[in-house]
Design a protein around this nucleic acid. Structure first.
Length: 777
DNA sequence: AGTAGGCCACTTTTT
DNA sequence: GTGGCCTACT
């Protein structure tokens, strides 16, 4: 096999490891995916194992897809019969095949968290409990945790009256899921474990088949996943796991990096291979990473090294407040772009999604496009969820959560009273509401059923006929046809036409995007489509290549790499998050999160701390992240124009206030003091020690980008806008455009809507930051 | 049945 | 500061 020569010594050792148990501890950027794909190719081509006898499990669909692509390239053909997927998708596949053993039929739907919450709310209300005391989200988390620990309602441990109530809710919840012919995320794993544990003939069928089992991101497995792997490999016991304890960041979801240790205990003969050569980052970045992670206990120490030397130190910047933090990011990116760095090379990482907002605002103001990962997820959008709910209901009329979501969408005069009546009649008939509706559609007016529904019959009949029509269409028509028919029958586009214009375009575009995805599943059908929708994650929607800076949480960054990485909000309480303060294990996980972020950087890393941060409308002083203290100062260069290193160890510090001396920041160098090329720059920010004081810096100019607190003095109102609709303008990165609207804000700022001809895109820009050149009036 | 206005909780990360 | 949710009103 020619490709084996591409591997380094340790990689080669891993790829060609003898059968039996193998543990590969792979540092970041050490070629983990490469080892996995080569291993599979090796098994197929050299050892002669049919792909049919191999199972490979990943955590995200994206990782699975990537592995499949690479593998097919290596093999030069499709790996027919190979099982390669996420834990959840592999389990779903098994459950559908073995549905005769289960309390659901093979058309079961997978409930996501929103569905679970709806269900739990109904149950909690039905039990006359106070939703504030029994919060659905908390109950959901409790049940999820129980399931991951393989605890059922019958075995739920009761230590208090509350526990007893929770157990009752859990029990009702399970019953409700079955009535809906539904399973939740955790059920996918739990039911598979039960199936394989309780039915030896089923277990043997799978365990015999899976001669080789490979697991990616092994440090992220939880108890139930560990057990699953063990069951899958229970006959041949050839398990090949790849992971890195240092990158375990899903503890809160039940992941237990100690499974790595457990693995070594359970499989005594396991060989252990360390991948320490890093092909991604510079040595300086690796040194910083190592300094941070070496403080953690319970890990295999690693000596990451690289051939990539560089003299670029890791940049460190202290911002006065969170707006300035965002501005620093913008300024630096602009500066780097000027030096020829591509916009897509940058990533900005933060601890929590809420931190993206100020960044987004700053990008918009600067007229810079950006890519946001996660947050307002496509699949979380109302219109997308609506359409999916219709499809789910058609596919599985027992799905009452979907039914309740859409029975009155668009509004058709079906309110609580009507739904109550339907529910009552359905219960009396011993079926689900969806089934009752289908019966209603088949019955004539004044039938027994019609009369039983009383005044509700009329409004329900309309929906019943729609549903019945789709259900029969689903049997013959293709998925795209069904999709179109539903949207058309509902007059959904007209329904969306309420709300602001921008919103309407956006929502309809989302429907179109969903339609496009549905087309991809034309030949696989509605069941496969719905399953893939249920199992996609945000991680899977991270674009491969982008031409704009990427904004994402540290969690979402795992597995990715970027030329230049910003990690912002290095404040004690943000990273590490304050909720981790009193738990050493959680603090260790926060540290790993920081480590994951650092090791995403190929060339340049920026670490940013912010002294004052706006939370709930008021500013709070922040101390530097405790993790910063572990980084040797020789690895850092100060981007701030004042000495900040000295402060890292000063607890507590006096509060500071800022002032600024200049209005024009367009040529503000982010590394005024680093001395790395470029001409000398004007210092822009000066800092003054001050007594704790509520006074803010002076803020007078009209083009200030510096933070203005809510109580900052308002500027004089300009009476006239500078720009006018119809003007032709030129923007540095978007090219030529026409101003469509001018909106004069209260503070004199002009917000412009411009259609850029070159890129054929509408942009909203703030006039003072967009640096527009007027071509013609 | 639909909607407006007020109140509250929110800020961890998500397969 | 803000969005989601509840309540009370039309």
């Amino acid at each position: 096999m020619k490709s084996l020569s591409e591997l380094n010594k340790q990689q080669y050792k891993a790829v060609t490891a003898e059968s039996g148990a193998t543990l590969v501890l792979a540092g970041p950027g050490s070629g983990k995916t490469r080892v996995l794909t080569h291993r599979i190719a090796y098994l197929v081509q050299e050892v002669g194992i049919p792909p049919y006898n191999i199972l490979a499990v990943t955590f995200t669909n994206k990782a699975a897809r990537e592995m499949k692509n690479r593998l097919e390239k290596m093999l030069g053909r499709k790996a027919d019969g190979l099982w390669l997927g996420t834990f959840h998708s592999v389990c779903a596949r098994i459950l559908r095949r073995e549905a005769q053993y289960l309390p659901v039929d093979n058309k079961f739907v997978i409930f996501d968290v929103d569905d679970q919450l709806t269900l739990l709310k109904n149950i909690i209300r039905g039990m006359n409990l106070d939703e504030k005391i029994f919060k659905p989200s908390a109950i959901q988390a409790t049940i999820s945790k129980a399931k991951n620990d393989i605890i059922l309602p019958e075995t739920y441990i009761i230590r208090s009256g509350r526990d007893s109530t929770i157990r009752d809710i859990y029990g009702s919840y399970e019953k409700a899921l079955r009535l809906n012919n539904a399973v939740d995320f955790d059920d996918l794993l739990l039911m598979t474990v039960h199936l394989l544990s309780n039915y030896p003939e089923v277990r043997e069928r799978y365990a015999n088949r899976f001669e080789y089992v490979l697991v990616d991101e092994f440090q992220d497995t939880n108890q139930i996943q560990y057990k699953l792997v063990k069951l899958f490999a229970s006959v041949h016991k050839c398990i090949f796991v790849v992971g890195d304890e240092d990158q375990s960041i899903y503890r809160w979801r039940g992941a237990d990096y100690k499974n790595v240790l457990r693995f070594e205990q359970d499989y005594h003969s396991a060989s252990k291979i360390l991948l320490e050569e890093n092909y991604r980052s510079t040595q300086i970045v690796l040194d910083v990473a190592k300094a941070v992670i070496d403080r953690n206990l319970h890990r295999t120490p690693k000596q990451l090294f690289t051939q990539r030397s560089s003299d670029e130190l890791v940049h460190f910047y202290v911002a006065g407040d969170d707006r300035e933090e965002a501005q620093y990011v913008i300024n630096t990116i602009l500066e780097q772009q000027r030096r020829g760095v591509q916009a897509g090379s940058f990533a900005i990482m933060y601890r929590i999604n809420a931190q993206s907002r100020l960044l987004e605002e700053a990008f918009l103001k600067a007229g810079l496009p950006y890519r946001l990962v996660g947050a307002q997820r496509f699949y979380g959008r109302r219109e997308v969820k609506d359409i999916i709910a219709f499809l789910r209901l058609v596919h599985n009329p027992k799905d009452e959560v979907s039914l309740q979501r859409v029975i009155n969408v668009p509004p058709r005069k079906i309110g609580d009273k009507t739904i109550d009546k339907l529910s009552e009649v359905a219960r009396w008939r011993g079926e689900s509401m969806g089934e009752t509706l289908l019966a209603l559609a088949a019955n004539s007016e004044n039938s027994e059923l019609w009369l039983a529904l009383e005044r509700s019959a009329k409004s329900l009949t309309g929906f019943a006929h729609l549903l019945a029509g789709w259900v029969s269409a689903a049997e013959s028509a293709s998925l795209p046809d069904l999709f179109d028919r539903i949207v058309l029958d509902l007059e959904y586009q007209q329904y969306l036409n309420e709300g602001s214009e921008e919103e309407v375009i956006d929502r309809w575009a989302n429907v179109q995007e969903l339609r496009r995805i549905a087309f991809e599943y034309d030949d696989q059908g509605i069941a496969a489509f719905l399953e893939s929708l249920a199992l996609v994650s945000d991680q899977d929607t991270v674009p491969e290549k982008t031409e704009a800076p990427t904004l994402l949480t540290l969690h979402a960054a795992k597995g990715l790499e970027f030329d230049q990485v910003f990690i912002i909000g290095l404040d004690d309480g943000v990273l590490p998050h304050s909720r981790a303060f009193d738990d050493d294990e959680e603090l260790a996980e926060e540290r790993r999160l920081f480590y994951v972020g650092i090791t995403r950087a190929r060339n340049v890393l920026y670490l940013v701390h912010t002294e004052r941060r706006n939370a709930y409308g008021t500013y709070e002083n922040q101390l530097p992240s405790r993790f910063l203290q572990d980084i040797p100062i020789r690895l850092l260069s100060e981007d701030s124009s004042f000495n900040t290193f000295g402060r890292l160890n000063q607890y507590p510090r006096s509060s500071r206030r800022w002032s600024h001396e200049r209005e024009d920041y367009s040529d503000l160098s982010p590394r005024a003091s680093s001395g790395s090329g470029g001409q000398a720059r004007t210092r822009v920010y000066t800092w003054e020690n001050a007594q704790a004081s509520s006074s803010r810096g002076r803020n007078s100019g009209s083009a200030s980008i510096l933070p203005q607190g809510s109580d900052a003095p308002k500027r004089d109102l300009k009476s006239e806008a500078v720009y006018k609709a119809g003007m032709k303008v030129r923007h540095k990165s978007f090219g030529e455009g026409v101003i469509l609207t001018v909106h004069l804000e209260g503070d004199g700022e002009e917000t412009l809507e411009i259609f850029f001809v070159d890129i054929k895109e509408m942009k909203k820009l703030a006039a003072s930051f967009a640096k527009l050149e007027v071509i013609s009036e």
